[in-house]
């Protein structure tokens, strides 16, 4: 990787802000412009910036292929788990109103949608980063 002080410094400054913005977009899925898909992709964009600036090996030292795959599975499990939770509460699959009726907590519907959005965000971010690792890394195994 070429040493370039400007790119490395600017990306070191920008990456935390991009990641905080991505979390903001995911969390604001229910109340404003945002959502899991968009926030997940913005989060993956911060990983692309890190790979461009510091090289694939440096980024992989922070989270490797296995960790990314686990994150992706965890995201889908959060989503499907909420669906099965609704089945458990005598509703249909992904019927949030059934969970709300059994647990009796007000505004639970919006909270469950936020959880689902978080699951989507984690899964999309992990899948994107996995694809980027595989395409940028010449297929080598690092973990």
């Amino acid at each position: 990787m070429m040493e370039n002080v400007v790119i490395r410094t600017v990306s070191r400054l920008a990456v935390p802000f991009i990641q905080i913005f991505a979390l903001y977009v995911i969390v604001h899925g229910a109340s404003g412009a945002g959502g899991g898909f968009q926030g997940g992709v913005v989060f993956a964009a911060s990983f692309i910036l890190m790979i461009i600036a510091f090289g694939t090996a440096n980024v992989r030292r922070r989270i490797d292929n296995r960790g990314i795959m686990w994150l992706s599975v965890i995201g889908i499990t959060i989503y499907a788990g909420i669906g099965f939770l609704a089945l458990l509460m005598a509703g249909n699959f992904l019927e949030y109103a059934a969970i709300e009726a059994v647990l009796g907590i007000p505004h639970l519907h919006g909270i469950l949608i936020d959880l689902v959005e978080a699951g989507i965000g984690i899964a999309v971010m992990a899948a994107m980063v996995s694809i980027i690792y595989d395409i940028s890394g010449n297929g080598e195994e690092s973990s």
Binding site: F37, M128, I131, I135
Partner: peptide, 20 residues
Amino acid sequence: ILTAIVVGVSVTAVALSLIV
């Protein structure tokens, strides 16, 4: 379209890796 964009990205990724 929000869901269609995701499918588009997936298709592009798989197609590019097949080309590789």
